[in-house]
Write a protein that binds this DNA or RNA. Structure first.
Length: 640
RNA sequence: GCCGGGAUAGCUCAGUCGGUAGAGCGACUGAUUCGUAAUCAGUAGGUCGCAGGUUCGAUUCCUGUUCCCGGCACCA
């Protein structure tokens, strides 16, 4: 039976019978066949060696295409698995997918792999690549697959066939050479030689079987892989760059903050770090005042009863710090440190009678919250146990809700843009399994958030099951200068808390109604956001956020008096300036303040002192400028 | 929380096959006044994370523990 193959450009070619992608490529040019990785058959990626047995539109995917990269990475995982089983007999294979930058494979083995093992394994992988083993796809009956893996002692694979694959689904097996095989959906390269050498094993770690902490612990080996060695090199360089930006390292070098054993997950802000904190807080404070918010402050410790009403005691207890106080007479008060600000804001709303005229009421708080995060989750400023949310709760009529949610979203976009983040993505997280409130409320809340996205013209994706226990949410993820995503802002609908606290307002017709409520945070947590800013700017914060904006450095001690005068003039103009009168050479001072990422070094020598000028040296620039003191002050005052 | 690795001077790190430790930077003191990314010399500074055990002797070996790091799980 002849097979008609249609190419992407519309050209057609007829073959006498079933033909493989590799044969088609070969018939076009040997060069193409060499660069080919997989073939897209009617939009589905197939192995190059899999016969195409019907008319089809095909596209031969070469090494340089993004789709090819995933196949290369997935192959790397298989080569890794073979290498491990060759070197460590008795190790079971489980799963090994491609990742954003490479691949991993999870193994079941009693003894964990060491860093030294990685080297050996990587060597063996390169050897397998050199062997250029053919990779062949086979379809096996289900029973044969189960039998085979059981006989091999591969209990995880066998379990997956029985529990994870529907009985009617065909099972594809990929043979790599004569002795090794894995069950896999594919597609794969025609042989191991095509993997190339642009890969590297990076780390070992633990992982759970099927991603569940109650299952067996597996040993995961991670690697990175690319189509070319240049790309691998570029990637490794990028990782090095990211390490240099690490806010924990910069925080220490720049003297911003520290964390210590006696207050795990909490931040000691040093003067410079706290300056950034206050500047950011003031920025948000002014911003939200312009957007019609009022600011409040509520207690850190509140009685257990309140948390029972809110539902936190039942749903969030394991993450809360609880304080027990002996009040004598065997009475004990049980208080909880707030993990969220909402119940507190409810109490303010409940004071007195609210009219529809009071709505929407946008109640903001820089709320100091504490959550008992799992020890393994803690990470510098990014994940802490004590943090400050730039939180707000918006009480409104149900009708006002979508518009209010959209306004909050617009505020978030505006702030991110002003802080230097242009790429922002929105996700709509829907009802989780563990939740309060009936489905009708959830239906409505989810619909209204989607509507809000339309109102603010923001495309969004759905994040199923990721909502909070009390309502669905919009999550705002920003991307930093080196492309890493950070989830910060959030807008959450809550029809449940108003119900639980029984809050009401008097409507136009005199009836009592239940307001809708939104939770929203722009930065999320000040701590975390400062961490992101430090990494975004690699510590070189924009002028307005720099804790020390200018350092006045005299060249000789004769100029010390003038330097003090210059520093005072800058301070009088509201510039955060310091002077460096140490008995050191100017080279030394410049190096130090450049390393400290100070935006402007103000240099004064004998000449400047006589002429009443200063020489400005801006961060990151070699050239400098000498100008009259008054002009310099004006210039810096206007800097951002 | 789980798996693995780690903790030595203020910082970055070396070292001790078991005999209580060392460098650079920083700090301090002195000299130097030197115009654009590290001036020279000297001095001080350590319960080798913490608690047990083995040992004549432990920073080193063993056990426990705390914290940190990389993943996993978690992120309401």
């Amino acid at each position: 039976m002849p097979i008609e193959i249609t190419f992407p450009d519309g050209n057609k070619k007829t073959f006498d019978g079933p033909v493989t992608g590799l044969e088609i490529a070969q018939s076009i040019s040997p060069g193409l066949a060499k660069r080919a990785v997989v073939v897209s058959v009617n939009g589905e990626l197939w192995d190059l060696t899999r016969p195409i047995d019907r008319d089809a539109t095909i596209n031969i995917i070469t090494r340089d295409k993004p789709e090819a990269l995933e196949v290369i990475r997935h192959d790397a995982a298989h080569v890794l698995a073979q290498a491990v089983q060759e070197l460590f007999p008795g190790t079971q294979i489980t799963f090994g997918p491609a990742t954003e930058t490479g691949f991993y494979y999870d193994f079941a083995r009693d003894t964990p792999f060491t860093e030294a093992d990685l080297e050996k394994i990587e060597q063996r992988m390169r050897e397998i690549v050199k062997r250029d083993l053919p990779i062949r796809r086979e379809i096996w009956p289900r029973e044969r697959v189960i039998e085979y893996f059981r006989a091999q002692g591969e209990s995880f694979k066998a379990e997956w066939v029985t529990e994870g694959i529907a009985p009617e689904e065909p099972i594809s097996i990929y043979r790599q050479g004569d002795t090794w095989l894995d069950m896999c959906l594919g597609p794969h390269l025609p042989s191991t030689g095509r993997l190339g050498n642009a890969f590297k094993l990076t780390k070992v770690s633990g992982a759970y079987w099927r991603g569940d902490a109650s299952n067996a612990q597996l040993q995961r080996i991670y690697g990175v892989a690319f189509a070319t060695e240049d790309e691998l090199k570029a990637y490794l360089k990028m990782v090095e760059e990211a390490e240099k930006r690490d806010h924990r390292k910069l925080g220490k070098q720049l003297g911003l903050f520290h964390i210590q054993e006696e207050a795990v997950g909490q931040v000691f802000w040093h003067p410079k770090g706290y300056t950034i904190y206050r500047l950011l807080e003031d920025y948000i404070r002014n911003k939200i005042a312009q957007h019609g918010y009022v600011e409040v402050k509520t207690p850190l410790l509140m009685d257990r009863k309140l948390w029972e009403t809110s539902g936190h005691w039942e749903w969030y207890r394991q993450n809360m710090f609880v304080a027990e106080v002996d009040e004598g007479d065997e009475r004990k008060a049980m208080l909880a440190v707030k993990p969220m600000n909402c119940p507190g804001h409810m109490q303010i709303f409940k004071q007195g009678i609210r009219s529809y005229r009071d709505l929407p009421l946008r109640m903001a708080e820089f709320g100091s919250c504490h959550r008992y995060e799992p020890s393994g989750a803690l990470h510098g400023l990014m994940r802490v146990r004590g943090f400050t949310q730039d939180d707000a709760h918006i009480f409104c009529t149900p009708e006002q809700m979508p518009a209010e949610a959209a306004a909050a979203g617009r505020l978030i976009f505006e702030v991110y843009r002003e802080l230097g983040f242009d790429k922002v993505e929105v996700k709509l997280s829907t009802r989780p399994d563990k939740r309060i409130g009936d489905d009708a409320l959830w239906d409505r809340a989810e619909r209204e958030l989607a509507h809000a996205c339309e109102l603010m013209n923001a495309p969004y994706t759905i994040n199923p099951g990721e909502g909070a226990f009390y309502g669905p949410k919009l999550e705002f993820t920003l991307y930093d200068a080196i492309g890493r995503p950070w989830q910060c802002g959030t807008v959450q609908v809550d029809f449940n808390l108003p119900e639980r606290f029984g809050i009401e307002y008097v409507a136009e017709d005199g009836s009592r109604r239940r307001p809708a409520m939104l939770h929203r945070a722009v930065l999320g947590s000040l701590e975390r956001f400062i961490g992101i800013l430090i990494e975004q700017y690699a510590g070189a914060l924009p002028f307005w956020l720099a804790p020390v904006q200018a350092v006045v450095a005299p060249i000789v001690s004769d100029a010390d008096g003038y330097a003090i005068e210059v520093c005072a003039a800058l301070k009088a103009a509201g510039i955060r300036a310091e002077s460096d009168l140490r008995n050191e050479k100017i080279n030394y001072k410049i190096r130090e303040h450049a390393t400290q990422k100070i935006p402007v070094i103000v240099i004064v020598g004998r000449k400047e002192a006589e002429e009443r000028t200063v020489t400005l040296r801006f961060r990151g620039e070699e050239k400098q400028e000498t100008l009259p003191l008054g002009d310099a002050v004006r210039r810096l005052r206007e800097s951002r």
